[in-house]
Design a protein around this nucleic acid. Sequence first.
DNA 1: ATGGCGTATCCAATACGA
Length: 265
Amino acid sequence: MKIATWNVNSIRTRLEHITEWLQNNSIDVLCLQETKVVDKDFPRSPLEQLGYHIYISGQKSYNGVAILSQTPLQDITTGFSPILGEQPLHSQLDEQKRVITGIINGIRIVNLYVPNGSEVGSEKYEYKLQWLKVLKAYLNSLLPTPMVVCGDFNIAPEDRDIHTPEAYKGRIMASEAERQALQAIKDLGLADVFRKFTTDGGQFSWWDYRAAAFRRNLGWRIDHHYLTADLYEQATACTIDCTPRKLEKPSDHTPVIVTIPPLQS
DNA sequence: ATGGCGTATCCAATACGA
């Protein structure tokens, strides 16, 4: 079973890239971020025609997540509140549509669009750290079900995940507090499955649109799959597909795919 | 230090991303 994550930076603008990519790759579950569209305007039919069931949580202009699955998902919920309870903090964080989850073959898929954070020390940075703290509680509540937690984390876990780490030391997506917040989540029993297969640097999932960053491979690896121990052991591959990033008018991110055995006992 | 590019929106100039 192949589970992919892809920040598409507007699903309406990227629709042809997405349908073409799905036709060329046997993807069972696709987790999308930054769909940037309200639910009533989500382009369902072109994706349903490819056999996908569609689960969405969108908003106008910003954020928005979706799961496409060849098999129907169970227990779909969106946001923190259904799992953590209706508290003011959770409701407030749920105004931005960044979380959707469901179960397939006994595996819980969690699709996340972690806040960007803008700049270290900014209000948005504090929001990001608070959001990550709530995310940890959210994921803890979902355990011990086997999980694939994937999405755009907007954090480079290590220096080898950044093209020029010394230039970004302590900056947004590389700061110590962000990395510690991510580590606290991993300490629940989740592991970055890309690193099971690849220790190299220079492996990225996002490249700035500016300064010909993609052509020069000046990127960051900020799109990840975190797996519970059982699934991590069973995973047979995790690959970054740079093909869509080469197209005309691409997303600034490219898909990352994990392969795990089809059925869980 | 800034902007560099791209997307969305009250379609023009601004917010936001990473």
